[in-house]
């Protein structure tokens, strides 16, 4: 593993921690798109089914479990524990508009026509667009809290740095995965477009956020 990938993974963990700590500290999931979190949950579950079939390293396994578990926790906090604070009236993006194209594309363009491989491909395509409901929610509410800015920057940088990792691996190891690279480029573009979409959105400070 090279430094780019490790740095990217740390940013990925940081993004998730930012989200969970915000919900935990303020006992509120205001401003967070439950739909994006459901999509990320699907991403992790469909991608990390290989926990049962392929062992890469202890690091990989621990991280995979971390992503699946924290994503389940986020969904639980939003839809059960702090359900009353979930702003479902602002979370209106139709996720089937993302799920169906990703499902169809993964059936057509994949490395191999076997279940695990199609699910991995679906997961990779879905990850690239999973943030869209969150971006629309921020746009619709017209305000964004600082934790959400940190979350979006960390999550966007994570895949952008993976692109550097893939360039590095191509040069050093002649290794590349066109599906991952294509989806990673799309994902990075979506975050960049997202920041353009959200320019002009007011940065708001929530009542409970100003704690040390």
């Amino acid at each position: 593993m090279n430094i780019f990938r490790f740095a990217a993974d740390l940013l990925h963990v940081f993004a998730i921690a930012t989200l969970l700590l915000k919900i935990w500290n303020t006992r509120s999931c205001a401003g967070i798109s439950g739909k994006s979190q459901i999509l990320f949950g699907l991403v992790y579950v469909t991608r990390y089914l290989d926990l049962f079939t392929t062992y890469v390293s202890l690091y990989n396994s621990v991280m995979k479990v971390f992503f699946v578990v924290t994503s389940a926790v986020a969904i639980f906090l939003i839809y059960v524990q702090y359900k009353k604070t979930y702003e479902h009236d602002l979370d209106l993006f139709r996720i089937e508009l993302l799920l169906l194209p990703c499902a169809m594309l993964s059936l057509v363009i994949n490395h191999e026509d076997i279940v695990l491989e199609v699910l991995w491909t679906f997961s990779t395509y879905l990850e690239s667009v999973a943030i869209i409901p969150q971006l629309f929610m921020v746009k619709k509410s017209g305000g964004i809290e600082k934790f959400m800015i940190r979350y979006l920057i960390a999550f966007g940088s994570y895949r952008a740095i993976y692109l550097i990792n893939w360039a590095y691996r191509y040069i050093m190891e002649s290794h590349y995965d066109l599906i991952a690279i294509f989806a990673g480029i799309l994902q990075t573009i979506i975050y960049i477009l997202g920041f353009f979409l959200l320019r002009g959105v007011k940065v708001v400070v929530s009542d409970k956020e100003e704690e040390p």
Partner: peptide, 10 residues
Amino acid sequence: AQDENLHDEL
């Protein structure tokens, strides 16, 4: 070359 199905990343 492309190592098909080598998913060693996250």
